[in-house]
């Protein structure tokens, strides 16, 4: 995963301005901000509100509605582990519980060394190759506890 840049109001303003001319620019702006800074923080809200002629409350309402937008940066790597029914039919819940237990985190949590965030996802469209996950955007399927641990270690350079 690319390292997120630290917050920079000028750069953020540029991003907002660049997309403000689109029809319905809100989600493209939020995605672009998150891609740049790794999250959509409170400081971004007034910038967007002013550019789109909305109240801060309206902008905050949108940011907080969608599961994707983070309020603080994630760990260096992000694992999205599928919890959909197809993955459950192949034992994904036990897989998830053992992983979360081993890492000592809850769903959505980040390991204490800041290396890995584990998030639930509801379907990756890999339902005939369950259980599945995305690790920093790369798909993984037919996971077992061993192959999942191996993929995580490999990503962390261990």
């Amino acid at each position: 995963m690319l390292e997120a840049s630290p917050w920079n109001a000028e750069r953020a303003q540029e991003i907002v301005t660049k997309h403000a001319g689109l029809e319905g620019p809100m989600l493209p702006i939020l995605h672009a901000l998150q891609e740049e800074f790794g999250h959509v923080g409170e400081s971004a809200v007034p910038l967007i509100a002013s550019a789109l002629n909305l109240s801060r409350a309206e902008v905050h309402g949108v940011v907080s509605f969608y599961h994707d937008f983070r309020h603080e940066p994630a760990g260096r790597r992000v694992l999205k582990l599928c919890r959909g029914e197809a993955c459950q039919s192949m034992g994904s819940e036990a897989l998830a519980q053992s992983l979360l237990g081993r890492l000592g985190v809850e769903w959505g949590g980040t390991t204490r060394d800041g290396e890995l965030t584990v998030e639930p996802v509801y379907c990756l469209g890999l339902c005939a190759s369950s259980p599945s996950a995305l690790l920093d955007g790369e798909p993984l399927a037919r996971l077992t506890a061993a192959t999942l641990a191996e993929a995580i270690d490999e990503a962390r350079g261990l």
Partner: peptide
Amino acid sequence: EGDSGTFADRM
């Protein structure tokens, strides 16, 4: 295509 168990659109 959010339904678990579907991937036709993606494919």
